[in-house]
Amino acid sequence: MVKSLSKRIGNAVILLLAVLVLNFTLIHIAPGDPVEVLAGEMGGATPELLAELHADFGLDQPFHIQLFTYLGNVLHGNLGHSFYYDKPVTELILDRMGATLLLVITALLFALLVGTALGVASAQKRNSLLSNLVTILSLAGFSAPVFWIGIMLILLLSVAVPIFPIAGMATADEPEGTFAYIFDVAQHLVLPVLTLASIYLAFYSRLSRASMLEVLESDYIRTARAKGLSRFLVVYKHALRNAVLPVVTFAGLQFAQVISGAVLVETVFAWPGLGTLAFESILRRDSPTLLGILFFSAVLVLIVNIVVDIAYRVIDPRISAK
């Protein structure tokens, strides 16, 4: 266990280095000059000022020098300095990280728990109303684009029936007290989470339904029934633990997708997270910030994959044996 874990972490470090080099190169190749964007926003600048800014940001150096300087900085824990915000990138990311993690983790947990529950419940009675409802809902969840679902939810639940706030993460005049604040954020969280979770909810409900149907047919379920166990124990103890294995696998694989989905959702709901920051950095050619966010996401995905690996071993004893 420890051995395979340290091997995984070693692989992760190599992978991260590759991600850094690849991202840096890609952004370098992409057209656009951050200095020109800055100059544009300042209302113009002399060629001397432009040259000075280039020198300040190290953009006048050859590519390989820039790359190695950047890699050296990252290894020392320095993700660089944002051209646009004039702040260290690490500080920017730490400021916005909480909002994104809150959104992504809530959405993923919601999709996992509710999706699995729906799938398992609908697997019990194949042709029941619930089963058909899950099939239809998951088809809709699969087919509809994320931003469209977001806009429809806003129109329905914020405009037509104003239950939830339209956008943002908290009311401008912050309510007094911790609980009031938590409640306020939770209210703002509902629609973005529903939007981001929709497609995964659909996916996990279908996956767990199929997996549950298969497991319920297996020999060891017949054994469990032959032992005289109650229906509840047979389904929720013996079948469920085997049926969630593929769901866990996919949750790990899809975490990266959820993070990229968050960029869209944050933009639709003006959620002050890393997604909006990444989007703005692209528009402003703020490459250090963008690189920092990409690096941070890569770290996050790798951590989640290792966690999933551990979870997998806990659920299925056959894996740790290999």
């Binding site: 020999d219 054994t223 032959a226 032992k227 299925d316 056959r318």
Partner: peptide, 19 residues
């Protein structure tokens, strides 16, 4: 079941729950 009357199945490889 399992109390007054119980059953041993044909396939020992798949009749036990792996987890």
């Amino acid at each position: 079941r399992g109390n007054d009357v119980s059953m041993v199945f044909q396939e020992p490889m798949t009749s036990l729950n792996p987890v």
